[in-house]
């Protein structure tokens, strides 16, 4: 079967700096895949290339949405990538701070709805109905992610862990087939991390959304992932199941040599 995301030999240069160097990565349907590596390895850059924020220097990014044909998405605008079913969260939280929690999720529905200026000004029947479905759908997502007690709070007033989960809720609202999570557990305490672990499993099993995540918390990574990719200096240094990665000498070297904390 085709992988739903197939990245082939992708390279990204920033002037003289090669942030990604001929990187290959694939995600199969229903998988949870982790991408790990020391700080500055190029993980976030990789996400930015896939989601259209950066246009990679060389290489191919192929996606195969369920029931659709394979498509090359290099250089597509971010909103078009999202429309095709890839949604992401950000390492440094990027919520719409002065909007309510519900409105943040409602924004996620934007690309799945149609109401235009005229419909909104005249409040046509179709517009009203669509608005209601947006509210209902968003609210259901918040319920699932466990944020319903915050519905009408401004997102900037949320506790940190809840903000991270709201980013996930917002991404879910775009109906993705692949969810890209950039360090979702960063700054969470042990309890919150455990909840996140369950949440991600639930999203994958129940909603059938595949997941690609960047994470430093090794316990979380080992517990969640079906497969792990390890990168350093923009290059892939290892790939395999959690068991294989744990014992890989290259990985141990990269981690102990560069970043003793991790």
């Amino acid at each position: 079967m085709e992988p739903i995301l197939d990245v082939k030999s992708i390279t990204m240069d920033f002037g003289g700096l090669r942030a990604l160097d001929r990187l290959d990565l694939d995600v199969q349907k229903g998988e949870i895949v982790a991408l790990i590596g020391p700080n500055g390895a190029g993980k976030t850059t990789f996400f930015n290339c896939i989601t259209g924020l950066y246009s990679p220097t060389r290489g191919d990014i192929l996606i195969t949405p369920p029931g659709k044909k394979t498509e090359r998405i290099n250089g597509l605008k971010p909103n078009h990538v999202t429309e095709r079913g890839l949604a992401r969260t950000f390492q440094n939280i990027r919520l719409f701070q002065n909007m309510t929690v519900l409105e943040n999720v409602m924004i996620g529905r934007h690309c799945r709805t149609r109401t235009g200026v005229a419909g909104a000004m005249l409040r046509l029947k179709s517009a009203r109905e669509e608005e209601q479905t947006i509210v209902d759908h968003s609210r259901a997502i918040l319920e699932r992610i466990g944020l319903s007690q915050f519905v009408n709070d401004l997102s900037k007033n949320l506790p940190y862990g809840a903000q991270r989960r709201l980013e996930i809720a917002r991404a879910m609202a775009t109906d993705p087939f692949l969810l890209l999570l950039d360090e979702p557990a960063a700054g969470m305490n042990a309890q919150e991390t455990r909840e996140l672990d369950n949440l991600i499993k639930k999203i994958c099993d129940e909603d059938g959304i595949s997941i690609l995540l960047i994470e430093h918390d090794m316990k979380l990574v080992m517990s969640l992932s079906d497969r792990i990719f390890v990168m350093d200096y923009g290059r892939k240094i290892a790939q395999g199941t959690p068991e294989e990665i744990k014992n890989d000498p290259e990985v141990i070297k990269a981690y102990l040599g560069e970043d003793p904390d991790a």
């Binding site: 259209g52 999202t82 992401r88 950000f90 919520l95 934007h110």
Partner: peptide, 13 residues
């Protein structure tokens, strides 16, 4: 609020 997040949520800037 945030132009980049806005695009990443599928809004045509």
């Amino acid at each position: 609020e945030d132009e980049i997040a806005c695009q990443a949520m599928g809004i045509d800037k």
